[in-house]
Design a protein around this nucleic acid. Structure first.
Ligand SMILES: [Mn+2]
Ligand SMILES: [Mn+2]
Ligand SMILES: [Mn+2]
Ligand SMILES: [Mn+2]
Lengths: 223, 223
DNA sequence: ATAATATTTTAGACTAATCTAAAAATATGA
DNA sequence: TCATATTTTTAGATTAGTCTAAAATATTAT
């Protein structure tokens, strides 16, 4: 169907559009797929010939709906595999990404629909990212970084911005995980670090840098 | 580590050695990996440089112990994945091979050891083929084709020679599966077809061609 | 033993994906 | 606006894997 490489470019372009909107630049893609701008230009021509992207020299690119469909399917597979690894094979959330990068390119409609069923049709992956369904539809997250909330806000942790193993391991260490309650006890004016209470435990401090990389929503009062 | 292609060549060489012994020919490999002899010669040089095979021009090849180890690991992964697909994702035994051909190249020690554990360390795959352990060790099957047994022998079905979907579907249709009892009721001298009884059901006829492709062992009397 | 046949290797070319270096286009800013 | 800096594209080379056609070697059959 499409080569590994083509799939990786499409996924990269999709994520850059998600971040910065259409008109994705050659250099931005080169960065993401860890290659040089010259190689990207070559690939853009190929993807354009295949009607997977809209491309005019020097103008930046966007995905056609065909290209977006391919990208969403790769992302669907990536996130389902991550979920499978965590839920069924006892992987930690910081161990799954690299393996999923390989597994996402396996071609089998049946395989992925069975994995989906086996996991009971999960809506989010182990990092809180939404899993597109068969048709590429997924719920847009309205989470925001913990850093934007106010003193005494009570939040539910829903995701991460930084997906690096190092950051995920840090969150493990301080006890922050998906679904945990985070109460903002107070903010240090000097460096914008936060004192927070996780699930009613003893308060801890997290840096502003950390707070910017943790996503959460306001907790709904219930009971 | 090793490319996709290199792994497929090593696996092909391993299986040819298993079948015909050392001194595997260029054409035999070309057949198995579905390429041309000239391409095989190129690859043999590369594998030889990497000390994965023993190769002297025109003399045929054998695997070094390093090469054998790689081949056995691919086969281990292939068979574990097939088992996973059948046991956990409701695939039929005739549906798993092609997907496993892709999955066998995924690189993750942890992934495969967890799959092994998840399946409770199976000894054979859905086709009755032995699954090498972490160290490449596996039990040699002493099964023989049904065609070599004698009238009134009572057998247990243990595997297949022909792994094609068409043959496996035929076996499904007539009710032959791993572990089933096969009693040889009689053999037609004319065309060597057999009348057999599967699990005490009504007798059926199978051709000599079919009998040669079904593996079995003599049933041990018990009770 | 020699000629005919079959197998294997070499030579040379092609494709996908990559790279470096140079040229072209665009953006920036005095 | 126009020179400078940055970004993007082109040109040309490289590598892995493949192919066809031709040459070299081995096998087989008279
Ligand atoms: Mn990931
Ligand atoms: Mn994820
Ligand atoms: Mn198989
Ligand atoms: Mn099998």
């Amino acid at each position: 169907m499409h080569s590994f490489t083509e799939e990786n470019y499409l996924k990269a372009i999709f994520k850059l559009i998600e971040q910065d909107g259409d008109g994705v630049t050659t250099n931005a893609i080169a960065d993401r797929v860890k290659t040089k701008a010259a190689s990207v230009t070559d690939m853009l021509k190929k993807l354009s010939d295949k009607k997977l992207i809209n491309y005019r020299k020097y103008q930046g690119v966007s995905l056609t709906s065909k290209g977006e469909k391919v990208a969403l399917n790769i992302i669907r597979k990536h996130r389902l595999w991550e979920m499978f690894l965590v839920e069924k094979l006892d992987f930690k959330w910081d161990e799954v990404h690299d393996v999923a990068e390989e597994l996402e390119h396996i071609n089998s409609e049946k395989l992925i629909s069975q994995i989906d069923k086996f996991l009971n049709y999960p809506k989010v992956d182990p990092h809180g990212d939404p899993i597109p369904d068969k048709n590429g539809k997924f719920q847009i997250q309205k989470s925001k970084p913990v850093s934007v909330f106010k003193q005494n806000d009570v939040l539910i942790m829903t995701g991460v911005v930084d997906h690096s193993a190092a950051f995920l391991q840090y969150l493990d260490k301080v006890g922050i995980a998906l679904g945990k309650e985070i109460k903002i006890k107070n903010m240090v004016e000097f460096d914008k670090s936060l004192q927070i209470i996780i699930n009613k435990n003893t308060p801890i401090f997290i840096s502003n840098e950390a707070a910017k990389n943790i996503l959460a929503i306001k907790k709904i009062k219930c009971g």
